[in-house]
């Protein structure tokens, strides 16, 4: 609105520009505050050690992939693959189990719905790290200890409440009329879901999958407790850093940050909305 306001007096003009300048200043401060640590981490992780230890070189000019390579060889490469596998297992299980529940919440009225939904909402805030230690005891019995499936299953219970709430909100966003029209014109309810609702919900569900991926990818406590050899990336790095050089730590930060940048780049808009839905 203020853009279109007709500025009449000198005072108004000055006030308007002061406001714009303060606004711009604050935005720049916020952006720099968040972005600078990312940028500096990437630069320092790749910096030549000689330059890093030179107090007068703030922004390095000479770079090397040596430390990142070293970390990858130490096991970060395998750990990254493990992380991806665990995240995919988590997405698979949590959607397989959570999508029907999300559909039920979005499309049906039934007795106990409100309390069940409230239960899911509450569960989302429950500290899931609690299950890690007892789960390990169970996993030893089941032969799931130190397996990626085991971690994936544990991550599924962490992701499930979120997946249910997100998918229910996404499915509720697809008009029920579309589904009913498909049923009138010859499909069963399941057929209508797969032929009409699912394609329409796909962009949202993809974003939800990315969201789930990020949750699993970033989780460290459960993963660290449930694994000894087959570690995910954060668990691997958590375990490694205690006795390693600064450069290995920097390289660890670098490897973990890069996917985040990619995620925000491809799904930023959806992610803001997801967090809005699930955290409310």
């Amino acid at each position: 609105m203020s853009n279109e306001k007709i500025l009449t007096s000198r005072g108004d003009i000055i006030r308007y520009y002061t406001y714009r300048i303060i606004l711009a200043g604050l935005v720049i401060i916020a952006v720099v505050w968040i972005a600078l640590p990312f940028i500096m981490t990437i630069l320092y992780a790749l910096a030549d050690p000689a330059q890093y230890y030179d107090p007068h070189v703030i922004i390095p000019t000479s770079y090397t992939l040596k430390h990142v390579n070293q970390l990858l060889i130490l096991g970060a490469y395998q750990a990254t693959i493990n992380s991806v596998i665990v995240a995919l297992i988590t997405i698979g299980f949590s959607f397989l189990i959570g999508l029907p529940a999300g559909y039920a919440f979005a499309r049906y009225r039934f007795r106990g719905k409100d309390s069940l939904k409230l239960f899911i909402v509450a569960l989302r805030m429950f500290p899931m790290m609690v299950i890690a230690v007892p789960l390990l005891v169970l996993y030893f019995k089941l032969g799931l200890a130190d397996t990626l499936v085991g971690i994936g299953l544990a991550h599924t219970s962490m992701a499930l409440p979120f997946v249910i709430l997100i998918t229910s909100s996404i499915i509720a966003g697809v008009r029920v009329d579309y589904e009913e029209a498909a049923m009138v014109f010859g499909l069963s309810r399941i057929g209508a879901f797969f032929r009409v609702t699912l394609p329409l919900a796909l962009p949202g569900l993809t974003a939800a999958a990315i969201f789930t991926f990020i949750m699993s990818w970033n989780e460290v406590f459960i993963a660290a407790v449930l694994s000894f050899q087959n570690r995910t990336l954060p668990a691997f790095i958590l375990n490694l850093i205690a006795g390693s050089t600064d450069f290995i730590k920097f390289a660890g930060a670098f490897i973990m940050v890069i996917p985040a940048l990619i995620f925000v780049f491809i799904a930023g808009k959806y992610l803001v909305r997801m967090w809005g839905i699930t955290l409310k």
Binding site: R175, D177, Y178, E180, A181, A182, V196, L200
Partner: peptide, 9 residues
């Protein structure tokens, strides 16, 4: 349908 329910995809 009142909303027509013409499938958008």
């Amino acid at each position: 349908f009142q909303s027509y329910a013409v499938w958008p995809h």
